[in-house]
Amino acid sequence: MTTSPNSPAQQAREALGARLRELRREAGFTGRALAALIDCHYSKVSRIEHGSQAPTEANIRAWCRACDAADQTDDLLASARAIESMCVEWRRYTRSGMKHLMQVAIPLYERTSLVRIYEPSMIPGLFQ
């Protein structure tokens, strides 16, 4: 499921992946070893840990079982469900296009009286 790289849903997915990576490391497994234990391809473990793929409930249960972290299963499942609902909400919000998302900033821009910009790659004034 695709989300914007900066969307809260993507950030939450990456945080969930980091939690799962931490569980794997605490258990002393490599990504390949865990993948073999939970019967999936090692690249899927990597995609889940980096937030580019959402884990299924079965993935989370197997992951926690393999890492001897069954006490964290319910919390991780709740997080995954919350992320899924955030993704659904994001898709609903962007279904009609991004125009209305961009227009949200217009009132702030109109109220702004001074804009300062720092451009580190440009040589200013007399130094050019």
Rank of each mutant, 00 (worst) to 15 (best):
R21P: 05
R21S: 13
R21M: 12
L23Q: 00
L23M: 10
R24D: 13
R24G: 06
R25W: 03
R25H: 10
R25K: 10
E26H: 08
F29E: 01
F29I: 08
T30L: 11
G31Q: 00
R32M: 08
A33T: 12
A33C: 05
L34R: 05
L34T: 10
L34I: 11
A35E: 05
A35G: 07
A36E: 09
I38D: 01
I38V: 15
D39K: 12
C40F: 08
H41C: 02
H41I: 12
H41Y: 12
H41P: 01
Y42G: 06
S43E: 08
S43K: 15
K44D: 08
K44C: 01
V45D: 03
V45M: 14
V45N: 11
S46V: 06
S46W: 03
S46Q: 10
R47C: 01
E49V: 09
E49C: 11
H50G: 15
G51F: 09
G51A: 11
G51Q: 11
S52I: 01
S52Y: 06
Q53C: 04
P55V: 03
T56S: 11
T56P: 00
T56I: 06
T56C: 05
E57C: 10
E57Q: 15
E57L: 07
A58T: 15
I60K: 00
R61M: 13
A62C: 05
A62W: 06
W63A: 03
C64W: 00
A66G: 05
A66K: 03
C67A: 08
C67M: 04
A69L: 03
A69S: 12
A69W: 00
A70P: 02
D71P: 01
D71C: 02
Q72L: 09
T73S: 11
D74Q: 14
L77G: 02
L77V: 15
A78N: 14
A78G: 08
A78K: 13
S79F: 06
A80T: 13
R81H: 13
R81G: 02
I83Q: 00
I83D: 00
I83M: 02
I83G: 00
I83S: 01
I83A: 04
E84R: 14
E84F: 04
S85A: 14
S85T: 14
C87Y: 00
V88L: 15
V88H: 13
E89Y: 08
W90Q: 15
W90I: 03
W90L: 14
R91S: 10
R91C: 01
R92M: 03
R92G: 14
R92P: 05
Y93L: 02
T94N: 07
T94Q: 10
T94V: 06
T94S: 10
S96W: 14
S96V: 04
